[in-house]
Simulated scan of single mutants.
Amino acid sequence: MDDSQQARIALDRLIAERGENYADLSRLIGRNPAYIQQFIKRGTPRKLDEDDRHVLARYFGVPDAMLGGGAAAREVAPDSRPRGVPASAPALRGVPSVVAVPRLALGASAGGGTLDDDERAAGLMAFDVRWLRHLGVQPQRVSIIRVDGESMAPTLSDGDDIMVDHDDDARRLRDGVYVLRLDGVLMVKRIAIGPLRGRFSVVSDNPHYPDWADIDPALVDIVGRVVWTGRRLH
């Protein structure tokens, strides 16, 4: 078995173990959706491009050699990396360095509430590393979650994608929009810090939905703060 065949087998095993899919990983490296499947199933191309291999190895957290790289992996030349992006950031072809953010297979309810019994990655979204740092977040500590319901309208609408900073939790709690668990239900709500020390209210921006005033913090599990939202135009 040659190195290229071993690389295809290793990549296919990683994809299956992590619950990923060929199309999302192809988009991550800036290729057409069928690219990874063709590489694994047909051996086309015979070897991954070096830039593609570096990004995939870094995403899966495996040695470059596992995916067909030599013992001495190629280093990106300093002048080929955008200014301000560290050497550890993966470089993609023709675009600034980006990082893959998992899109979780669950919805944070902005309505009556949904149980989060399927908290696993359902895909990937790629973001510019510098832009994430401008937001003040660590790329490895954010995820994308879909909003279900209208209780946070007009701030958030049903179907919006929100980026959640999991480092911004109860230890740093302040006024803002958060994903939280209340009575075992995952929801996205506004938190308003109250005048009493340690107490806060859980608020729906839509006045037609209920609020929880002056709540005991012990009843709420803060998942993270919402730092960005994106939506599809209709």
Rank of each mutant, 00 (worst) to 15 (best):
M1R: 04
D3M: 03
Q5R: 05
Q6G: 06
A7G: 01
I9Y: 09
I9E: 15
L11I: 11
D12W: 12
R13H: 15
E17K: 14
E20R: 10
A23V: 07
A23M: 11
S26Y: 13
S26D: 12
R27W: 11
R27F: 14
L28V: 15
G30T: 08
A34T: 14
Y35F: 15
Q38F: 03
Q38C: 05
R42M: 08
G43Q: 04
T44S: 03
R46G: 04
R46D: 07
R46P: 01
K47L: 08
K47A: 06
L48C: 11
D49M: 09
D49I: 03
D52W: 04
R53K: 11
R53A: 06
H54C: 06
A57I: 01
F60P: 02
V62M: 11
V62Y: 10
A65W: 02
A65Y: 05
G70P: 00
G70C: 00
A72M: 01
A73Q: 10
R74H: 05
R81L: 12
G84I: 03
G84F: 10
A89W: 00
A91T: 05
G94K: 09
G94E: 08
P102T: 03
R103L: 07
L104H: 00
L104D: 03
L106E: 00
L106H: 01
L106T: 07
G107V: 00
G107C: 00
A108G: 11
S109E: 13
S109R: 02
G111Y: 05
G112N: 09
G113N: 14
T114W: 02
L115C: 06
D116E: 14
D116K: 10
D117Q: 08
D118E: 13
R120E: 04
A121Q: 01
A121Y: 05
A122T: 13
L124D: 01
L124G: 04
M125F: 06
R130G: 09
R133F: 02
L135R: 15
V137R: 10
P139Q: 14
I144T: 05
E150I: 10
E150P: 08
P154D: 14
S157P: 05
G159H: 06
D160A: 07
D161L: 07
I162G: 00
V164Q: 01
H166F: 08
D167H: 14
D167Y: 13
D169F: 00
D169M: 01
A170K: 14
R171K: 04
L173G: 02
D175Y: 00
G176V: 12
V177D: 06
V179R: 04
L182C: 11
L186Y: 08
L186G: 04
L196M: 10
R197H: 15
R197S: 12
G198R: 04
F200Q: 01
F200L: 14
P207V: 13
H208I: 14
Y209C: 14
Y209W: 15
P210H: 11
D211V: 10
P217L: 12
P217V: 07
L219F: 07
V220M: 07
D221V: 12
V223T: 03
R225F: 15
R225T: 08
V226F: 02
W228R: 00
W228K: 04
R231V: 02
L233K: 13
L233I: 13
